[in-house]
């Protein structure tokens, strides 16, 4: 502390590092503890109790809630549902947004126009998108847009969200998320592309490389490494948290079908919906949190996050 005599009163107090730090960061950390850490601790506490219809339980049941969740086929199915969903959504988002970014990067005329058009879906909420998908594009009537399109090819109308064999609800769920997020990630890729120095390509041409796949593989992709990792991670975590479009596409008046039920939807109904069981809901939340932490760590290791420049 340099104790400059000119700093008095408030400025003096806020010049002492400890005081200054907690004045500036105190509210944030208090909130983080109350709404970030405390819930986690309390859910661990609740998960050891019989907590049906109450948030202040008294009956300790040990690991019974965990056992019930881990042997519950519905919960395990929900993890499988998430995995399937991520397997579709993450690679598709990656490929499509990178492709779109490359197209945008090449377009020198009217680029802002195209960029705006591709970015606009990001303004839409999942609820509104679900409304459009469920009621007008993929409804089960012959007048639905998708059924009109396949009707031109002579196919019979499909009840997209109500049919399980084949599981037509998957294209509905996946296309919705792609529509909402591909443009957003394309812009992130575009920013990455624009940061690649031209000199790298020029040097490659001097060495005799031809534009196209070779330079893309050996220059563009490696240069996009940081961006790619960011896109993959954001995407995966977002897929884990999928709730909005599932709930709004498949939910109906308090019930949700036993298929295509991701973890958060299952936890929602277990803890707050028909289940009213905060003990099991909390146990499920803890299991899920551990799983996500583990996946993030492993993926971080594999992709080398935390090493080198960010």
């Amino acid at each position: 502390m340099n104790g400059t005599p000119r700093r008095r009163g408030w400025e003096g107090i806020t010049d002492r590092p400890a005081w200054a730090f907690w004045i500036l960061a105190g509210p944030f950390f208090a909130g983080l503890v109350v709404f970030g850490h405390l819930p986690l601790l309390w859910s661990i506490y609740l998960s050891f109790f019989e907590a049906r219809n109450t948030v202040t339980p008294t009956e300790f049941v040990g690991l019974a809630n965990y056992a019930r969740m881990l042997t519950s086929r519905a919960f395990l199915d929900s993890l499988l549902t998430f995995t399937l969903f991520a397997l579709f959504v993450v690679p598709l988002t990656f490929a499509l947004s990178l492709g779109l970014a490359l197209l945008l990067h090449r377009a020198r005329r009217a680029r802002p126009l195209f960029r705006t058009a591709c970015f606009l879906p990001a303004a839409c909420s999942y609820v509104v998108a679900a409304l459009v998908w469920r009621l007008t594009i993929f409804n089960g009537l012959p007048s639905g847009l998708a059924n009109t399109v396949i009707g031109h090819f002579g196919a019979a109308p499909i009840a997209w969200l109500a049919v399980t064999d084949p599981p037509w609800y998957w294209p509905v769920l996946v296309s919705l998320r792609l529509w909402l997020q591909v443009g957003f990630y394309a812009l992130i890729f575009l920013a990455g592309l624009q940061r690649i120095p031209h000199s790298l390509y020029e040097a490659a041409y001097v060495d005799g490389a031809s534009p196209g796949w070779t330079t893309f593989r050996h220059i563009t992709l490696p240069q996009l490494r940081a961006t790619s990792i960011a896109v993959l991670l954001l995407n995966l975590i977002a897929a884990y948290q999928a709730f909005d479009e599932f709930y709004n596409l498949l939910g109906a008046d308090g019930t949700y079908p036993p298929y295509a039920r991701p973890p958060l939807v299952y936890l929602y109904y277990t803890a707050l919906g028909s289940g009213q069981d905060l003990g099991r809901g909390s146990a499920g939340a803890v299991i899920l949190a551990l799983l996500i932490a583990a996946v993030t760590l492993v993926q971080g290791r594999l992709l080398g996050i935390g090493r080198g420049p960010r």
Binding site: R52, A74, A162, T164, D165, T255, P257, P258, Y259, Y269, G273, S274, G275, Q276, D277
Partner: peptide
Amino acid sequence: TSAMDAAFKDALGNIVKGG
């Protein structure tokens, strides 16, 4: 109760639509 109803409907859904 609603928990029973949910379990019962899950079973029905699995039978009718999940084969």
